[in-house]
């Protein structure tokens, strides 16, 4: 068994109109090499699901997004994602804006393969007003309290960036916080994992760190070897986010042809060209891990 797939072949599996889950959190551990390959493709009408970061802004800027389902969209030290903001203020995309915890409950329902999960979150707020598809459900126990029924947030494919993977699709993820990659993966029909490094067999090369595995290989359809593939977001414990690049990216949102320029100057036609354009692999590998 060998799930190693090229970046191009992995993204060639995606189809217009798909619901795509994206792991990571804000400007942290986003599968950006896969996202850039989508930017280079003709894909369109996508629905994105995630705790959003630059991938949301970029895919919106490229006109590839029909709908967003999110708990937030942010670049951490740059609180407001500039292209997400632009897309929202132009009313260019359909959205389901959920509370972060409610979003996690919807992912968990999808992972459990049930149609919804009950919560009190949202009551007393406009989350109910602006997600009119949300229905209430009465508890079958006790006093019959009405609760919000969060619909399962299923994805067709989820994209996740990991620290290590093997050819079977076993994955390990370093860093202080797993975020919700396990649920983003479990909510999917299939997972494409991009990885900082690829080995033949995890049980031979990295048996001492198996607890850093966030989901098992039965979920994983393809593994893409993409060193530095989270840039400009953080990939613990390898390298930190590139705030200077994120600021430069954000600044292009204020220019008339800013997005076209960003595509041409940075994303270009390959990851090798991208890494050259952002200062080279050595410089990316040296980006310091952010401290809080």
């Amino acid at each position: 068994m060998n799930k190693e797939t090229s970046l191009a072949d992995a993204v060639a599996e995606l189809r217009d109109g798909m619901v795509i889950g994206i792991g990571g959190w804000g400007a942290r551990r986003k599968p950006m090499a896969l996202v850039r390959q989508i930017l280079r493709s003709d894909l369109k009408d996508l629905t994105l699901v995630g705790f959003g970061g630059p991938e949301v802004g970029m895919l919106c800027a490229a006109g590839k997004v029909r709908k967003l389902i999110y708990g937030f969209v942010s670049l951490d030290h740059i609180p407001l994602e500039p292209y997400f903001r632009k897309a929202r203020e132009a009313a260019a995309v359909e959205i389901n804006e959920y509370d972060e915890g409610m979003f996690l409950i919807g992912l968990r329902a999808a992972a459990e393969r049930v149609p919804f999960a009950p919560t009190r979150i949202g009551i007393g707020t406009d989350v109910l007003t602006y997600n009119p598809h949300l229905k209430m459900v009465n508890s079958p126990y006790g006093d019959g309290e009405a609760l919000v029924a969060v619909p399962a947030i299923r994805t067709d494919v989820s994209l996740v960036h990991v620290s290590r993977a093997d050819r079977f699709g076993n994955v390990q993820t370093d860093g202080p916080d797993p975020y919700f990659d396990n649920l983003i993966a479990r909510a999917a029909d299939k997972v494409i994992a991009s990885t900082e490094s690829l080995c033949d067999r995890m049980d031979v090369s990295h048996p001492d760190t198996v607890k850093s595995s966030l989901f098992d290989r039965t979920m994983v359809q393809a593994v893409v070897n993409a060193p530095l593939g989270a840039h400009p977001t953080t990939a613990h414990d390898a390298y930190g986010w590139d705030m200077a690049h994120l600021k430069a990216y954000g600044a292009t949102a204020r220019e008339d042809d800013g997005w076209a320029r960003y595509m041409q100057d940075f994303v270009a036609d390959s990851e090798a060209a991208y890494l050259d354009n952002v200062g080279g692999a050595d410089a990316v590998a040296r980006l310091p891990i952010p401290q809080f």
Binding site: L80, E89, E100
Partner: peptide, 16 residues
């Protein structure tokens, strides 16, 4: 909300 004058962060974890 459907065509914001200024998009901010989203509701984040505030409702919960």
């Amino acid at each position: 909300f459907n065509a914001p004058k200024v998009q901010l962060l989203g509701v984040r974890g505030f409702p919960g």
